Simulated scan of single mutants.
Amino acid sequence: MRLPRLRLIAAATAAAAALALVPAAAVAEPPTPFYPGYIISDDSFFNPDAMTAAQIQDFLDDRTCRPKDDSPCLADFRMDSPAQPVSKERCAAMPSRKHERASSIIARVAKACTISPRVLLVLLQKEQSLLTAPSASGYQRATGYACPDTAACDARYFGFFNQVYRAAWQFREYTVHPGDWRYKVGANRIQYHPDATCGASTVTILNQATANLYNYTPYQPNDDTLRAPKGPGGSCSAYGNLNFSRLYTAWFGTPLAVRYTGFVDGCMVYQSGFGCPEPTPLKP
């Protein structure tokens, strides 16, 4: 069993700065830990530099981890990571590595695919409780990629590296080809549960990051679920995106945070999922 070590953790981004670039529609809503149309800012979702590999490792070391079987805690997990070719518009090439830590895998995938490592950490916990209660099955299905609610998981994508990489790849796919996917910025009819008889309502999605979360987990919490965010849920409760918001807030502060306020180029805060291009090197 791995127990947390005491550390000083840097204070979360100030609330005033976090709200400066929040869309007016989100600010106008009553105070709530979950706003269905604006679950996370683009900057919080897409910033690949939010944590270094060392910071991720420290974060994993600080979790209280009690494995369900003989599996290691994520802080101690290592594996041989396969090479990945360039995936045009989605992820940069990744070389193979031997005996690589989970923290390094998360950091490298985040950088290659322009996704925040915080998002990947929350996803690992949301899908399989991998940070606090790891298991062999959890490592196989780490991010829930290719594991639909209505069918068995596709075993071709099993394995920790595959799951982390494919989830990040999928988030980039939603981002670079938003018109190809069901949920887009704007008005969307979103169900409360996989069972369509549980109903749905129209949600105005305000940014690409929130659209990505709904394309990955296509349900919103109903009123009963919001009233009991820690459960027990009813027959029409779906906690996925609510749990994402709650976990992110508990670990990293408000998911609506942005790093820069005022009049800045949109690329500086990953507006719509795209950062600023690298400067062209000067010719000698």
Rank of each mutant, 00 (worst) to 15 (best):
P134T: 08
L121D: 10
L120S: 09
P95V: 06
K126S: 02
F59Y: 10
L121A: 06
Q84A: 11
P95G: 10
F77E: 10
D80K: 11
V109T: 05
A133I: 02
C113G: 04
F59N: 02
P82H: 05
D80L: 08
D80G: 06
P85W: 03
P67V: 10
S135W: 01
R97T: 01
L120Q: 13
A92I: 01
M79K: 15
P72S: 09
S87I: 05
K126G: 02
A75G: 11
S81Y: 07
D76H: 12
P85G: 10
R101T: 01
S137Y: 08
I106E: 07
R63E: 13
L74T: 09
S96Q: 11
R63I: 06
P85D: 05
S96G: 04
E100W: 00
V86K: 15
K98G: 15
K126I: 04
A107D: 13
T132G: 06
A107P: 11
E100S: 00
A133R: 13
C65A: 11
C65T: 10
P72L: 12
R118M: 08
D70T: 13
A102Q: 04
F59A: 00
K98T: 15
D61R: 01
H99K: 12
V86G: 05
S116Y: 13
S137Q: 12
G138P: 02
A133L: 03
K126F: 00
Q84C: 09
A102I: 05
P117F: 05
G138M: 04
I56D: 11
P67I: 11
P134Q: 02
L121Y: 09
M79Q: 15
L60I: 04
S71Q: 05
P117N: 10
K126P: 01
L120D: 08
M79G: 13
T114W: 01
I106A: 08
I56K: 10
I115C: 03
A102M: 07
F59R: 05
D69G: 01
A75V: 13
D76Q: 15
K68C: 02
S87T: 06
V86R: 15
T64F: 06
P72I: 14
K68R: 15
A102T: 07
I106F: 14
R97E: 10
P67W: 12
I115Y: 00
E89A: 06
